[in-house]
Amino acid sequence: MPDIRKMIGLAVVLVALFWPVGYFADTPAWRHDEVGAAQIKISFAHGGAHKTACRRRSAAELRALPANMRKLDDCPRERVALAFVFELDGKPIHRASLPPTGLSGDGPSHFYGVFPVPAERHEILLKLRDSRREDGYDHVQRFTVDIAPGRNLAIDFRPNAGGFILY
């Protein structure tokens, strides 16, 4: 025969112990971004040009190679670092040199950046150099966008789809 008094005592204890569980399961709330704020999130994964151009192998060089590796061109796989510039309303916001990834530097370069902005009309200027040139940029794009409060404007780079793309 269970002891009713103890059972009630236990129920009281357990309610006291677990009621806070119900409470702290979603309270108090946390504010991540300013209410009404907006942001621009830029991220891309893109491989730059190879650092050195392919070179035709001489007949002697070819003969020295094992048969299964006799390719006419010698193409070093290392890529150049990308040069990336992000300007907002005429002011430079971010400038970066993005090294290639991978052990031998043959993987794509990555970028991921979050930039809080006021919710209003903005001029966005994006510049990217992915070739072997020393200065200047291979892709320069300018956008004018009205960013609404609470908007997360995402920007990716897809060379096959015309370069920088807004989402």
């Binding site: 119900g22 702290f24 979603d26 309270t27 709330a29 946390w30 209410v35 908007r151 997360n152």
Partner: peptide
């Protein structure tokens, strides 16, 4: 507790929007 305070979602995710307030499970 489940009947008094059912667990609910906090509105569908929308990656085109920033996150303002979220109710955190502090545990």
């Amino acid at each position: 507790i489940s009947l008094v305070k059912p667990a609910v979602s906090q509105g569908p995710a929308d990656l085109a929007q920033v996150i303002e307030w979220v109710g955190l499970d502090w545990f």
